[in-house]
Design a protein around this nucleic acid. Structure first.
Lengths: 205, 205
DNA sequence: CTTCTAATTAGATGAATATCTAAATATAGG
DNA sequence: CCTATATTTAGATATTCATCTAATTAGAAG
């Protein structure tokens, strides 16, 4: 659904994104014209104009009526307004990334940076990295001790740079470590540490 | 004014008329992203994304905030709505052909005396000639200076009697002249002069 | 059926521009 | 000052598409 909308809009923009066609629309907005009339007015050849008009008709922006061998084209003004209003709302635009979603910020961050079980890339922003670390931490049971080697293996299933992630999880107190053995810390400890880290660090929202 | 509007709109469409950029907008609608984040998400190289973002910023659709070496981009949703509403009304579109007007008196005069790009004959009535002069004046860019020879050539493309037309355009202050160089005058100057000339001069309709 | 005119379709060419690589710039940290 | 990283700029290539000419289709009238 999003993709259909997006390609409809894309086509709309592509059709209107040329000077000749905008000027053509200008003529057609006043009254109806035949192909050859328009060609003379615009200093273009008939086939060129015909080609442009075809795109308009395909879009539903312009209609044609035939009289003898002459084809008269005119603008459908209601179609213009309809397209104009219906297509370009911020909510629609938000769906174009097909990483869509009407849920909260954390979900959006996860959807952006995690694909299934693999982290596509590490965010630049610390706040966003926290979301990823939180997700990663969930892969470890509480009340269990992980030798460094095992911890690395688990992280590697989600992202190759296990060293960075391991360090950051410790720094943010998602995990603790002693003698190369790691374990998950309680929620409150993590939350408190994050608050501290963020307090000097006002980034986006 | 018409032409400026039209080129603004044209640029707007050109910027939005590419799939990569629409998808980019999709991401930016949700939250802010850095260039490299977007590049990875879209499977494009950083310079490509930077290039697209530049166009958005130029349009005023997207804003950037810098943190260290990282540039965060985000959508200005109000700008989107503003552009969307302001630009694409049927009345505006009608001006793009610079053969304006639906079926008012001016349009009828033009249709009577102008065929395509050539003036079929000069009207007898001063009021009607004004319409033709106005049309002719549009063939010249504002903020540009035309040597008399070039001016003549351009007028000759529309009517053989360039001398009369040149004189009348100056008289009605469509154009000004100094040392055989001509340029288009601002709308208000022309309008004012026409009012003066017409005030003592009630001819037909 | 032939001819004339208007429009469309097909195919070729050229211009605009999306994307890439390489180089330049700017910022943070040692 | 030197290195490392994020971005931008420059320049090259490739693709998309506007426009043209030539050929085809379709209607109107002899």
């Amino acid at each position: 659904m999003e993709q259909a909308d997006m390609h409809r809009l894309l086509n709309f923009f592509k059709v209107l994104a040329h000077e000749s066609r905008l000027r053509l629309l200008g003529f057609l907005a006043e009254q109806e014209y035949s192909v050859s009339e328009l060609a003379k007015l615009m200093n273009l050849k008939d086939p060129t104009v015909s080609h442009h008009l075809g795109k308009f008709v395909e879009l539903g922006l312009v209609t044609m009526r035939q009289d003898g061998t002459t084809h008269y084209y005119r603008l459908d003004a209601t179609a213009l307004q309809r397209l104009n209003k219906e297509l370009l709302t911020p909510e629609k635009v938000a769906t174009f990334s097909n990483e869509s979603g009407s849920d909260d910020w954390e979900s959006r961050v996860r959807r952006a940076f995690i694909d299934g079980e693999t982290i596509k890339q590490l965010p630049q922003s610390f706040k966003k990295e926290l979301v990823i670390l939180k997700w990663l931490a969930e892969k470890f049971e509480r009340d269990r001790r992980y030798p460094e080697k095992e911890l690395n293996e688990i992280i590697k299933q989600h992202h190759p740079d296990y060293a960075t992630l391991r360090r950051d999880m410790v720094d943010c107190k998602f995990m603790a470590r002693e003698n190369s053995v790691y374990w998950r810390l309680p929620q409150e400890v993590t939350d408190h540490q994050i608050e501290v880290l963020l307090s000097g660090n006002f980034q986006d929202g």
